[in-house]
């Protein structure tokens, strides 16, 4: 049976539409929140880190640099936490009708993807306004986002399927994601880490999220951005991408094994 056959496509679109519709229901600004929220978060980070602490003075277009970092990070957190919770939220459906369960996770993460799309429009407007020039390397951005999406989807499948029985995962993930935020050069620039310790910078850049964020900055904003590709030694350059595929594979396998029993265990 084809994975995205007609029946599954219908269900996927309908669930995604519902998710998106419900997300901002009952709020006055509605869909605008998809843009306002990351902008507000960016505003806070910009004030604290760029203005008061004077991070990134040596980096060209630092505000946009910061903005794309927070936008990608928000996408990752939204994708994983919504993906993990989605199975619990839709438990009602699973107990009443049979359908491929991964569609639930896919539709939850698709909603995050739509939000990212909206945010990227904002990022591009900001970039052009602050004088970033259009370059052919922009074409690499969708590929990098795909990489980040596959990572998030793999994590959501893996953690989500365990969360069905052990709800602790949800809480653990919330804490873990806070820690992870500081382990990625989002608010502080990578050169700052290199100054302290070259080794620490290399370890940080093994993280696929850090790799994607730095690469997108490189492709979108300025080729002066230091990437994992630049500082990691030979074979280690491939570790971030390899991690993405390993996590995705584990996610798919675990989900496949566990999803048969979701309706009984939830």
């Amino acid at each position: 049976m084809k994975v995205l056959n007609r029946k599954n496509r219908i269900l996927l679109t309908e669930l995604t539409k519902t998710d998106f519709k419900l997300r901002y229901q009952g709020s006055i600004l509605g869909y605008l929140w998809a843009i306002i929220r990351p902008l507000l978060m960016f505003g806070i980070l910009y004030l604290v880190f760029a203005k008061f602490l004077r991070f990134g003075a040596e980096i060209p277009h630092y505000p946009v640099y910061l903005l794309i970092g927070t936008v990608l990070w928000n996408f990752f957190t939204e994708c994983t936490s919504q993906g993990i919770q989605s199975l619990i939220i839709r438990s009602d459906l699973m107990r009443k009708i049979s359908f491929p369960k991964w569609i639930i996770v896919l539709s939850a993460t698709a909603t995050a993807l739509i939000n990212l799309g909206i945010n990227l429009v904002v990022v591009i407007i900001f970039s052009l306004l602050s004088g970033v020039s259009i370059s052919w390397t922009w074409l690499l951005v969708p590929l990098l986002i795909l990489e980040l999406y596959l990572l998030s989807f793999g994590l959501a499948l893996f953690l989500g399927s365990i969360n069905v029985k052990f709800r602790d995962i949800q809480s653990i993930w919330e804490v873990l994601i806070q820690a992870l935020f500081y382990a990625i050069p989002i608010i502080y620039p990578l050169p700052m880490v290199i100054q302290y310790s070259d080794f620490a910078a290399k370890i940080l850049m093994l993280n696929p999220i850090a790799q994607v964020i730095q690469d997108v900055r490189f492709a979108l904003i300025t080729p002066e951005t230091i990437t994992g590709w630049e500082i990691l030694p030979h074979l280690a350059k491939n570790i971030p991408l390899a991690l993405v595929f390993i996590i995705l594979l584990i996610g798919i396998l675990v989900f496949k094994k566990k999803s048969k029993y979701f309706a009984e265990e939830i």
């Binding site: 219908i10 669930l15 519709k21 229901q25 839709r90 009602d92 107990r95 009443k96 009708i97 359908f99």
Partner: peptide, 25 residues
């Protein structure tokens, strides 16, 4: 099975019919 296959209280009756239909394929 049991009442209301996947009904969502926040959606209108019409939206629920279409969602429900999608669940059935």
């Amino acid at each position: 099975i049991e009442l209301g296959v996947g009904f969502n209280p926040e959606l209108t009756g019409k939206e629920n019919i279409y969602l429900n239909g999608a669940m059935l394929g």
